[in-house]
C-alpha cells in the first residue's frame, strides 16, 4: 500500500508550523509522521549527497546517516527553515567525509606515480547549498498550492523537455488561452506562500540595473541569479 502525505493545514499557504507538528508527532513515536517528514525533505538530502559523486551504496549510507542524526536532533529542529538548513549542512559534512575517505583509500591502493592523477582531472564536487535549500523550500511551497496550480507549475517549470501549451491544456483540461493567466496567478500564490523565504537574502554581486530598451532581459544582473531563461526552448504556442 502506498502512503501519500498531505498538506497538513490550509492548502493555500506554506504553514511554517507544519514541520514542527510532524516533529512533535515523531517525538511522540509516530512512525507515519516520520515517513511524512522524510518524504518532505528527502530530495534535498539526496541532491546534496549526489553532488559528491558517490556510489549508489555510499549515497544510501549518507542518506541513512543523515536521517539517523535527525532522529537524535529532532527536539532542536522544529522550524522548516532551520530544518532545511540543518539537513543540507549535515548532508554536506557527511558526504564530504565519505568522499575524502574514499579518496584516501583509493590513494593507499594506488601507485605513487598515479596519485597525482587521481585528482588532477576530477571536476570539483560539492553542492551549491544555498541553491538546493532554496529549491527545497520552493518545492514545499509548491506542495501547499491547490492541486491544479501544482500540476501546472510542475509541467511548466519542472518537466524536461517542456511540454507544449497545447499538451498542458489537454492534460489539465484547461483552455489554452487560460494557461498564461493561470500560470501568473499560480506563481503569485507561490510567491506569497514563500514570502519571507527570500527576505534578507537579496541577490549578491548585483547593482541597481540600468535598462536599455530592446536589449532583452536586463544585462546588469547575472542570469544565473535571476531571470534565467529556460534551458530548453520555450514552446511557440502563444496564448
Amino acid at each position: 500500500m502506498a502512503w501519500h502525505t498531505a498538506a497538513v493545514t490550509s492548502p493555500r499557504t506554506l504553514d511554517p508550523a507544519e514541520d514542527s507538528r510532524l516533529v512533535e508527532a515523531c517525538l511522540a513515536g509516530e512512525p507515519r509522521a516520520w515517513e511524512a517528514l522524510v518524504r518532505r525533505h528527502e530530495r534535498l538530502v539526496h541532491a546534496v549527497a549526489r553532488s559528491y559523486r558517490l556510489s549508489d551504496a555510499d549515497i544510501g549510507d549518507v542518506f541513512q546517516e543523515v536521517f539517523a542524526a535527525l532522529v537524535a536532533g529532532l527536539p532542536r529542529l522544529r522550524e522548516s527553515r532551520a530544518l532545511v538548513r540543518w539537513l543540507s549542512s549535515t548532508t554536506q559534512r557527511i558526504a564530504r567525509a565519505t568522499a575524502l575517505r574514499q579518496r584516501r583509500e583509493q590513494a593507499l591502493s594506488t601507485g605513487v606515480d598515479e596519485i597525482s592523477g587521481l585528482t588532477a582531472g576530477d571536476p570539483p564536487v560539492g553542492a551549491d547549498l544555498e541553491r538546493l535549500e532554496e529549491q527545497a523550500m520552493i518545492r514545499l511551497g509548491l506542495a501547499s498550492l491547490a492541486p491544479r496550480c501544482q500540476r501546472l507549475l510542475e509541467a511548466l517549470y519542472y518537466e524536461d523537455p517542456l511540454p507544449s501549451y497545447s499538451e498542458i491544456a489537454h492534460r489539465l483540461g484547461l483552455p489554452m488561452g487560460s494557461i498564461g493567466p493561470t500560470r501568473a496567478r499560480c506563481i503569485e500564490r507561490l510567491r506569497l506562500a514563500l514570502e519571507g523565504l527570500f527576505a534578507g537574502r537579496r541577490i549578491t554581486g548585483t547593482q541597481e540595473p540600468t535598462f536599455e530598451s530592446g536589449t532583452g532581459p536586463p544585462q546588469g544582473i547575472r542570469l544565473g541569479a535571476f531571470g534565467e531563461k529556460p534551458s530548453h526552448p520555450v514552446q511557440e504556442d502563444r496564448i
Partner: peptide, 20 residues
Amino acid sequence: LLHEVGRLSSAMRSDRTPPV
C-alpha cells in the same frame, strides 16, 4: 517584483533533482 519572480522561476527551472 522582477527580481523575485525571476529568481523563483529560475530556481524552479534549474531544479532537476530526481526523485529519491
